[in-house]
């Protein structure tokens, strides 16, 4: 069954076209990594699929329904790069994760026992149940990222869409969410994940798509890391992802991928 179908998509912001011509097909049970350099358009691709960036040309179909008519948002769990800018008003981990139930419950119904169970189950899956009552601001970056994954899981989606969940995350958290995603995929869930590098998710990824210059430059088995990434002990942690210099660890097309 088709989960995401993108054909000849073009999209961008404020007159700048970032995606030029992208076609992508994700079927139920797929685990697809979207790789690419900073500015290649990999995040724009998933943001356009989710409707956060308007498309200019081309078609997007979600679960067999054209994007404009798609209403079953409870089937999609979105994990953004980071928690929205801290607002100062405290919110507990449990409260943030409970937002994940809204798509399924609707805005007119009060949360019930099923919602509370789903929140606890999702927090258990990412190993944060003991922090349910703590303010999210007191969590580490990696724990906040796991909170966002729990929020997406709480809605019991069929498709998880993650935007660089590895960025700026400590090793313990990377392992915890790799485990959560492995379980989700094991239960038949579909995953579309934007990654800077495969990291601990390598085992899970069935197919990689490399976006370069607004187009798909490579699609197939996950590419092997090159250069210093290939060293067996290479631990690739980005405590400050946004400070990464362009070109240090990008999935630039190689000879192999250019031939594609």
């Amino acid at each position: 069954m088709s989960v995401v179908e993108v054909s000849h998509l073009a999209a961008g912001y404020d007159g700048r076209e970032i995606l030029r011509d992208v076609s992508l097909s994700v079927t139920a049970g797929d685990v697809v990594a979207v790789l690419g350099a900073n500015g290649s358009g990999k995040s724009t691709l998933i943001r356009t699929i989710l409707g956060l960036v308007p498309s200019r040309r081309g078609e997007i179909t979600l679960f067999g329904t054209p994007h404009k008519r798609f209403r079953q948002w409870q089937r999609i769990g979105y994990v953004p790069q980071r928690l929205g800018a801290g607002s100062g008003v405290p919110a507990t981990v449990g409260e943030v994760v409970a937002s994940g139930r809204l798509a399924r419950r609707g805005i007119f119904r009060f949360p019930g026992a099923a919602d509370r169970d789903a929140v606890r189950e999702a927090l258990t899956a990412v190993g944060l149940l003991d922090r349910i009552g703590d303010p999210v601001a007191t969590l580490s970056g990696g724990q906040q990222q796991r909170t966002l994954i729990a929020r997406a899981l709480a809605g019991r989606p069929d498709l998880l869409v993650l935007d660089e969940p590895n960025a700026g995350v400590d090793a313990a958290s990377q392992e915890a969410f790799a485990a959560a995603l492995t379980r989700f995929a094991g239960e038949g869930g579909t995953i579309l994940v934007v990654l800077h590098e495969l990291g601990p998710l390598r085992q899970l990824i069935g197919r990689a798509v490399v976006v370069h210059d607004g187009r798909i430059a490579y699609e197939g088995t996950p590419p092997e890391p090159a250069g210093h990434h290939a060293e067996p002990d290479h631990e690739h942690l980005h405590p400050h992802a946004e400070e990464i210099q362009a070109g240090i660890c990008e999935w630039a097309p190689t000879e192999q991928t250019k031939a594609y």
Binding site: G51, L52, W73, Y78, P80, G84, S99, G100, L102, A103
Partner: peptide, 8 residues
Amino acid sequence: EYARVSGL
């Protein structure tokens, strides 16, 4: 953005 993707 999350609220938007939730269909709210």
